[in-house]
């Protein structure tokens, strides 16, 4: 990702210049002010580093444990990295077939992201660029679903899905997620920030709605689409409750629930903390990678969501 790197460099440079400028302007008054400024900054950096350390620590421990054999660490001294990283990850992924849960989660997340994007793009297109009766009612109908998160309706949803014969299927963990008020809302807000004259030009030129969507809106919404995709991916990837109740076949289970299976057959007393931590790290990696890679688009999108 050269662009991301450029950006990081860019912001770093800006920050450096700003800092230099500040200290220059401070220097004009007294050198004492520079010193105070620098000490202050140093203190802030120490504080920030501590915060970062505290926030990273639990996962750092998990990562260390995932390199050990038994995985029992009862004191800080136990935190020496072990030499079993490779064998642990291999055992988790291949031996215990965690790759299958990861794959299921991945397929589920990608399917939901793609499906949601299509469904929401069409809905947002209509809501922003069409004139039709009861439009506000339709928009409210979509927004109102914000009040119906999975937790308040998973009981009847379970009955409905099983009655449709869709319990324990891929359908059950994807299709119910496809309607998303949040995504429609974010896309709508973004479309509203695109000048109206663009669609008017298109209209006068005879460009149809779908072509406008494909050739103008989508290319112009790249950052936001990446952003909402990351948000949706993280959201879907992290789903726990619904797969827990609707999926019981191991072959279809997702990583979040599969993690618990790594604890081993509990009643036989197998203790596998290093496996659990290995699985935890594996489960954390995909959303984390997306966050780091696409943080710029993600942050941009969040600012839209908040409105």
């Amino acid at each position: 990702m050269p662009t991301t790197e450029d950006n990081m460099l860019g912001s770093l440079l800006t920050a450096l210049t700003a800092a230099a400028e500040r200290s220059r302007s401070a220097g004009r008054t007294t050198s004492e002010r520079i010193r105070r400024f620098e000490t202050e900054q140093l203190t802030l950096h120490v504080l920030a580093a501590t915060v970062v350390f505290l926030i990273v620590l639990p996962v750092l421990i998990a990562a260390l444990v995932s390199t050990k054999r038994a995985g029992i660490v009862t004191s800080i001294g136990d935190l020496v990295p072990g030499g079993h990283a490779l064998s642990n990850y291999r055992r988790a992924l291949i031996g215990l077939e965690f790759w299958r849960f990861m794959l299921n989660s991945f397929v589920m997340s990608v399917a939901v992201v793609v499906g949601k994007l299509i469904v929401s793009l069409l809905a947002a297109l209509v809501i922003v660029y069409y004139r039709f009766p009861y439009k506000n009612a339709v928009f409210l109908f979509i927004l109102f679903t914000l009040l119906l998160p999975v937790p308040v309706r998973f009981v009847p949803l379970y009955r409905l899905t099983t009655e449709l014969g869709m319990g324990n299927t891929f359908f059950a963990i994807t299709v119910p997620y496809l309607a998303s008020a949040t995504t429609v809302f974010i896309l709508r807000q973004h479309f509203l920030s695109i000048p109206a004259s663009l669609v008017e030009t298109a209209k006068v030129d005879g460009v149809g709605p779908l072509r406008f969507l494909w050739s103008v809106l989508i290319p112009m919404s790249r950052a936001v689409l990446v952003g909402v995709s990351v948000i949706m991916f993280v959201y879907t990837w992290n789903q726990y409750l619904w797969p827990l109740v609707i999926i019981n076949a191991e072959s279809l289970q997702v990583a979040q629930v599969g993690l618990n299976l790594l604890r081993g057959q509990a009643s036989t007393g197998e203790v596998a903390w290093s496996m659990v931590m290995t699985g935890s790290i594996l489960t954390l990696l995909p959303p984390l990678a997306l966050l780091v890679l696409f943080r710029r688009q993600l942050l941009e999108t969040f600012t839209i969501q908040q409105k």
Partner: peptide, 18 residues
């Protein structure tokens, strides 16, 4: 970035790690 990453952290992982 070092502070916001737990946004991506699955709650199940948070639970197990804790």
């Amino acid at each position: 970035v070092a502070v916001i990453w737990p946004y991506a952290l699955p709650p199940a992982v948070a639970g197990l790690v804790f």
